[in-house]
Design a protein around this nucleic acid. Structure first.
Lengths: 199, 199
DNA sequence: TGATTAATTTAACAATCATCTAATTAGACA
DNA sequence: TGTCTAATTAGATGATTGTTAAATTAATCA
């Protein structure tokens, strides 16, 4: 995850014509001339941009007779999306956050304070740092990648605390989860709000 | 169209010096000269890059005496990281309506007319079509799925125009947002009032 | 083979960009 | 007031970039 690769990825996406190419290709593969026509540029321009996208591994090509069809490389597009965030915050190693022992102890003690022996949340911490620690603790018990209905999320939260509306809103607000069309999903840990350097 | 926003975000991250600035700031706030020293560039260069990062909302500033301390805007950094991916793949599933170039140009020119170089709204268009274009432009800068308190919405609007009450009412009237129990939320774009076929 | 079609390369252009030096602004403080 | 100090601006320079028209390559097919 070196700096140059991250820069290259963002350079590739830092042009409106190239993004439009990718949007078009998301609906299916297209050849150079078709792209040129739809975007009102010349084929030479498409070649130029295709080269940059290919260098960043964002597209693949397939040859049929003498026309070349471009298609998305979904793997690279999606996997580099968070590369910059990872690099900047450099907190992640194999999906898990790197904390020093001090921080681990501090988090454990706060969780002990706010989570009862029955596993339920005694109260919602008012202090931001403590709140983030507790929210992270809760959200870690959700399944990554699974889609949850709002009702399921409510039930999940209610097994910890009555005020599911507030906590659900906090999940979204601090990027622990995202919602799209009534469907909730856990965000990758890179996106979670961090508490480590808060006072 | 949020394409511009996505491009701006990736442009901001498409330079090694800027990424290094963000990496340094992830460990804590720093002033311009400290950054200049650590990166072996002149303070003028830092100012230059800070301007770009600020325009993309990736950093915040705090003044103490005559020193300005930069810090990360974690919210914007993390929330834009997936913006490109969402934009590229959304068109497929959403079956979103696509504007033709005429309409794009018309919208761009109206936005140019009513939004100053500082990003603020010069006046509220009287003509419905123009008003919808401008409202859509404003509302596109809100985060889908996030719940906003009325105070937050007011602040958001005030960063564009003094008359937040009128504009907030327009947001509701044209279904850009909905309000429930004092909590505001962006509606899905399918609900937004459309201007495309107005005279 | 020659004709056709798609893609690439080349050369050129204007625009943008990163960086520097030097000059200027804006606050702080004595 | 005048002197620091930090930041910004202005102007210049060299590099990179997006785009095009024109020439060229590569593959197909009659």
């Amino acid at each position: 995850m070196q700096l140059d690769k991250v820069v290259a990825y963002h350079k590739a996406l830092a042009d409106p014509t190239r993004i439009k190419m990718l949007i078009l290709l998301a609906e299916g593969e297209l050849n150079g001339q078709a792209l040129a026509e739809k975007l009102h540029v010349t084929p030479a321009t498409i070649t130029h941009h295709a080269t940059k996208l290919r260098e960043a591994s964002l597209i693949n090509e397939r040859r049929d007779k003498n026309t070349i069809y471009f298609s998305l490389d979904n793997y690279f597009i999606k996997n580099n999306a968070l590369a910059a965030v990872r690099l900047i915050y450099r907190t992640v190693e194999g999906g898990q956050l790197v904390m020093d022992d001090n921080q681990k102890n501090m988090a454990a003690s706060i969780i002990r304070n706010f989570i009862g022996k029955d596993g339920r949340l005694k109260s919602i911490p008012a202090q931001l740092k403590k709140k983030l620690i507790v929210l992270e603790h809760l959200v870690s018990q959700l399944e990554p990648g699974r889609k949850y209905e709002e009702k399921e999320i409510n039930e999940f939260i209610k097994s910890f605390h009555e005020d599911f509306a507030t906590i659900r809103r906090e999940f979204i607000m601090h990027q622990f989860m995202s919602r799209e069309d009534q469907v909730y999903e856990l965000n990758p840990p890179e996106m979670w709000a961090r508490w480590e350097q808060l006072a």
